[in-house]
């Protein structure tokens, strides 16, 4: 097997069709992860230890086991569970699987953002007699969210690179198209290279953008000075 530029040129439009599915699926999974992340934050703030503890370990469990196995669980095992089991189409399974997996990361980001708000801010809002909802809306969240933007951006890029996992349960996006092409013509390297190039083309500029965001927000929020 040798490298063929003809094959390379030929597969570009084929893979390109899958690019939109990959991007769309990334956004869907990411939105799900962003929203579901609040669920974990909420659960960890319930003032009852056992619930707290239980959800912290469930999140830890999901975070430290492979998303691929979780995808298989949702796609293959879920329908076999009595009563609650339903068969899901691959897209929905992917959104649920990757979305839930990454929600355990976004929740950590939210948590760190909330913790980064100075304790005095809570005390000051209590002193001004703000209600709990007012505290969150006017004082805490406006300070907690901006510093997390670069981190959340990073997770969007990471999500983008994890989405090809969905090809293993039959989502026909870039990687799947490349493997199909390979199986048909026994030409794998060119389509896979095209897939890699598309990933690079999208994720590298995004990473640069996020690096700039990071600098911007660090400048505004980093009050620490280095001394030893």
């Amino acid at each position: 097997m040798t490298w063929s530029w003809d094959v390379f040129i030929n597969v570009i439009p084929i893979i390109f069709k899958g690019l939109w599915i990959t991007v769309g699926l990334t956004i869907a999974c990411y939105l799900f992860a962003m929203i579901f992340g609040f669920f974990w934050v909420f659960m960890s703030r319930i003032p009852w230890r056992p619930v707290n503890w239980l959800f912290r370990w469930i999140a830890e469990f999901i975070r430290s086991t492979p998303p691929l196995v979780q995808l298989f669980f949702i796609y293959y095992a879920w329908p076999a569970i009595p009563v609650i089991g339903v068969t899901l189409n691959p897209f929905v399974a992917a959104i649920l699987g990757l979305g839930i997996h990454f929600s355990t990361y976004t929740s950590e980001v939210y948590r760190s953002g909330i913790e980064s708000v100075d304790k005095g801010q809570w005390e000051a809002s209590t002193a001004l007699n703000l209600s709990t909802a007012q505290k969150w809306r006017h004082i805490i969240l406006p300070q907690a969210i901006p510093p997390t933007i670069p981190m959340l951006g990073n997770y969007l890029i990471i999500m983008f690179k994890e989405v090809p996992l969905a090809s293993t349960i039959g989502v026909v996006a870039m990687l799947h198209l490349a493997n199909d092409y390979g199986a048909q013509y026994y030409k794998y390297v060119e389509p896979l290279t095209v897939v890699a190039l598309f990933f690079l083309l999208l994720s590298y500029p995004s990473a640069l953008l996020i690096g700039r965001l990071e600098k911007k927000y660090n400048r505004r929020f980093d009050k620490k000075t280095a001394t030893l």
Partner: peptide, 21 residues
Amino acid sequence: IFRGTSLIVQLFWFSYALPGL
């Protein structure tokens, strides 16, 4: 290069390209 592409893609790429290419 390695951070910009996806591990699963790299894995397939290596497994086909190393022996073939």
